[in-house]
């Protein structure tokens, strides 16, 4: 087969893609289970914070129009936990989890990943602010914090989305 013919080029590209595809599927078979395992363990570790020792299950289909809710989990007989991703001051956003007991009170609030401005937005993750949230119920809005307007607004929007789902689920 001549090097310049279309057939040669086609065969070369095709063989190369097939070879790469096979290698990738092999590596994927090795690494994918580990990745999934790590992901579930991380989520479970976070869920345990709210209701240690409870039975957790994930809710797959939920109707969320805001796009902020990234995960919904049920703690059997105890409450609901919501994983939210919102954008405060930092454009890459931050994630946090909020849990509502079955009676509607806030069971817990914890940041997962955040990079807000230290001394300003990060005050929303200090015990002083978090204690204020723990006093709330599903009907209340999270308080705004002066000097941390964007971050606390983002938390308010996130919790509003979570409580909307909570009310809908009841």
């Amino acid at each position: 087969m001549n090097k310049d013919s279309m057939a040669y080029k086609g065969v070369l590209l095709g063989l190369l893609c097939a070879f790469c595809g096979l290698t990738l599927s092999g590596v994927n078979a090795i690494t994918a289970p580990k990745i999934e395992e790590a992901r579930l363990a991380k989520i479970k570790a976070n869920l345990e914070q709210f209701y240690p020792g409870a039975e957790f299950s994930e809710v797959r289909d939920y109707q969320d129009d805001t796009g902020l809710v990234k995960g919904v989990y049920v703690a059997e007989g105890k409450g609901m936990i919501y994983n939210l991703k919102v954008t405060g001051y930092n454009s890459s956003g931050f994630t946090f989890m909020v849990a509502y007991n079955d009676d509607g009170t806030v069971a817990g609030f914890t940041p997962i990943e955040q990079n807000e401005t230290s001394g300003f937005g990060s005050r929303c993750f200090d015990p002083e602010y978090i204690n204020q949230i723990l006093e709330l119920t599903a009907d209340d809005d999270a308080p705004l914090l002066s000097g941390a307007t964007l971050t606390s607004s983002a938390i308010r929007n996130g919790m509003a989305a979570a409580s909307a789902l909570f009310e809908a689920g009841k």
Partner: peptide
């Protein structure tokens, strides 16, 4: 051809990194 080679290598490195250095 070069792009396929490089992209496969990057995907492999990414998968290994995601599994062992999350």
């Amino acid at each position: 051809v070069y792009i396929v080679i490089i992209a496969s290598l990057v995907t492999i490195v990414g998968m290994v990194m995601q599994a062992y250095m999350p």
